Deep mutational scan, measured.
Amino acid sequence: GDWICPDKKCGNVNFARRTSCNRCG
Rank of each mutant, 00 (worst) to 15 (best):
N22L: 13
C21I: 00
N12A: 09
D2K: 03
N14E: 05
R23S: 11
D2A: 03
G11T: 06
G11Y: 07
K8H: 04
C10P: 03
N22D: 15
F15H: 07
K8D: 10
R18Q: 15
W3A: 02
G25K: 09
C5A: 01
R18T: 15
S20C: 11
W3K: 04
G1M: 12
S20M: 11
R17P: 15
N12D: 09
N22G: 14
C10H: 03
R23E: 09
I4D: 05
R23K: 15
R18P: 09
N14D: 05
W3Q: 08
C24V: 01
C24A: 04
T19N: 09
G25D: 08
P6T: 13
D7K: 03
G25P: 04
C21L: 01
C10R: 02
F15L: 11
A16C: 03
S20E: 12
K8C: 04
T19M: 08
D2H: 01
G1V: 10
N14T: 04
D7F: 07
C10N: 01
D7N: 09
N12T: 11
N22P: 08
N22R: 13
A16H: 12
I4H: 15
N12W: 02
F15R: 10
D2T: 09
S20A: 11
C21N: 01
R23N: 13
C5M: 02
N14P: 01
R17W: 10
C21Q: 00
R23F: 10
S20Y: 09
V13Q: 09
C5Y: 00
G25Q: 07
P6K: 12
C10T: 03
K8N: 11
S20Q: 09
R23C: 11
R17V: 12
D7V: 05
A16I: 09
N22A: 14
K9T: 12
C24Q: 01
V13S: 09
N14Y: 02
C21Y: 00
G25I: 01
S20D: 10
R18K: 12
R17G: 14
I4E: 10
G11V: 03
T19L: 09
G1P: 06
P6G: 07
G11N: 01
P6A: 15
W3Y: 06
R18V: 15
N22E: 15
C5E: 02
K9R: 10
N12H: 11
C5T: 00
C24K: 01
G1H: 01
T19G: 07
P6E: 13
D2E: 13
N22Y: 06
G1T: 14
N22T: 13
C24E: 05
P6Q: 14
C5S: 02
D7H: 08
V13M: 14
R18C: 12
S20W: 05
I4T: 10
S20K: 12
G1Y: 05
K9A: 13
N14K: 04
R18W: 13
A16T: 11
S20I: 08
V13A: 10
F15A: 13
C5F: 00
R18I: 15
N22Q: 15
R17I: 12
G25N: 08
G1R: 05
C10G: 04
N22H: 14
K9L: 08
N12M: 04
A16M: 12
N12Q: 06
C21H: 00
K9W: 04
K9P: 07
P6S: 12
T19Q: 06
R17N: 14
C10K: 03
P6R: 07
C5N: 01
A16Y: 10
C21E: 03
V13K: 13
A16P: 11
G1D: 08
I4C: 03
D2I: 03
N14V: 03
T19S: 11
A16S: 14
K8A: 12
D7R: 08
N12P: 00
D7E: 10
F15V: 14
N12K: 11
I4K: 10
K8F: 06
C5I: 03
T19F: 08
W3N: 08
W3P: 04
G25A: 05
R18L: 14
D7Q: 13
C24L: 01
K8M: 11
G25H: 09
A16K: 10
K8V: 04
G1A: 09
S20L: 06
D2C: 04
R23I: 15
P6Y: 12
C24G: 02
K9D: 15
D7G: 05
P6W: 10
K9Y: 15
T19P: 09
C10V: 03
D2R: 03
I4V: 14
C5L: 01
N12G: 06
S20R: 10
N22K: 10
G25F: 05
R17K: 15
T19C: 05
R17H: 15
I4A: 09
G1I: 11
G11E: 03
G1N: 10
D2Y: 02
C21G: 02
K8E: 08
G11M: 11
R23V: 12
C5R: 00
K8R: 07
G25V: 03
N14W: 00
S20G: 06
G25E: 06
W3C: 07
V13F: 09
C24Y: 00
N22F: 11
C5V: 02
S20P: 04
C10F: 02
K9G: 11
C10I: 04
R17E: 14
C21M: 01
D7Y: 08
R18S: 14
C24H: 05
G25C: 07
K9F: 04
W3I: 07
R18Y: 13
K8S: 10
